[in-house]
Design a binder for these strands. Structure first.
Lengths: 206, 206
DNA sequence: GTCTATAGCTGGATAGAC
DNA sequence: GTCTATCCAGCTATAGAC
């Protein structure tokens, strides 16, 4: 059933507009960042007035929080859909590949890394924090399993692996390559995955 | 000879104050970022008034540009001081180690990755761009040599290696580990270097 | 060169008509 | 719920006195 199935026509229109607002917010966040994104930007991108925007979201922080939550939910949905027979390392690789592809296709900003201000704002958003903790819990378990099976370096603290893994989803090297290299999106994804797991040395025996 | 050696007392004081301003700017940039840093923040951190600040730097963009230039110059100085007998891969490792240590000790923000706005601003700063290009040229040569000798993966495009290498200097995993793990600074540096060069899999034969 | 004071603008948020 | 018009805070940058 569609998520719109049980709503009245008016509510459907409301939901659709809300999604359009979140789409616009995501795009603007991606290339201006939180501090420079204005509510006027969002309103005019959607084609509504600023006060109408405030009928949907009570503040700029609330709006951005909802956009980030939609992002995390997308990641969670992708994770849940993955084949249950995949090895943990394959799940982690598929998740990173998905995140990179979404980003290369104009999608997500992954703000949390950007600035202390934005990070604090999101930390105060309990709904957002809840989603993050849930996803983090699932990924922690995958990392632990992959370390046990030898697919991830067991000599590294799992914190180091997990945070490095997260950081790759918002690695600025992606934008550099998209801007300055002749590689296409699929090549960029392939190489970023290789660098993440095999490092800059490349596969070798030490 | 000190850089102050040939200046009059008044000019010495002027230079010292300028350095104090750049120190304060660097610190504030580090934890608020460009957009949220105000000229009042800088002036009051140094203990002078805003108009006095504008006697030293003609705009906020100019001030931040000079702070970034001082940062790049520091990296260049460190590179020039390194033992000339080191292998290219050892030089690259030492440079990254230096950058991580400076950052962990409260130093540098490495803004360019942050936002398109800041990146464009710096791109318009010809003095800054010149310094970056010079440093980039030296690092490109080191990467090429290390790829030839097999110390860096020769199957990867050199762009991918260079941009990934730059990205590690501002990897948000560092802040995450500093904030949420129990590792001390030296351990963080060691692990970040290992992850950069050997990857998350760890050393192995494929 | 240093300050106090302020101009000029931008952007988040809202009042109030329809 | 939608709009036009506006308030108010905070910021960059400068005028002008000392």
């Amino acid at each position: 059933m569609s998520i719109l199935g049980k709503l009245s026509f008016k509510d459907q229109a409301f939901k659709l507009r809300e999604n359009a607002i979140l789409d616009a917010t995501t795009m603007i966040l991606k290339d201006k960042g939180f501090d420079l994104m204005t509510m006027d930007d969002v309103a005019s991108a959607v084609g509504i007035s600023k006060p109408s925007l405030y009928k949907h979201f009570k503040s700029k922080e609330d709006l951005v929080g909802e956009a980030m939550i939609r992002l995390i939910d997308g990641a969670g949905d992708f994770l849940d859909q993955l084949d249950k027979d995949l090895k943990p390392i394959e799940v982690l690789s598929a998740m990173l590949e998905w995140a990179l592809r979404v980003r290369l296709e104009g999608g997500m900003p992954f703000l949390p890394s950007t600035s202390a201000h934005v990070r604090d704002m999101l930390t105060r958003n309990l709904k957002y924090v809840g989603r993050v903790l849930k996803l983090n819990y699932q990924l922690e378990k995958l990392v632990a399993k992959a370390q046990k099976s030898g697919d991830l370096d067991a000599s590294l603290p799992s914190d180091v692996i997990l945070f490095s893994y997260y950081s790759r989803t918002c690695d600025p090297a992606v934008e550099f390559l998209q801007r300055y290299s002749k590689l296409d999106n699929e090549q960029i994804i392939k190489h970023m995955l290789q660098v993440c797991f095999a490092g800059l040395h490349g596969p070798r025996c030490d």
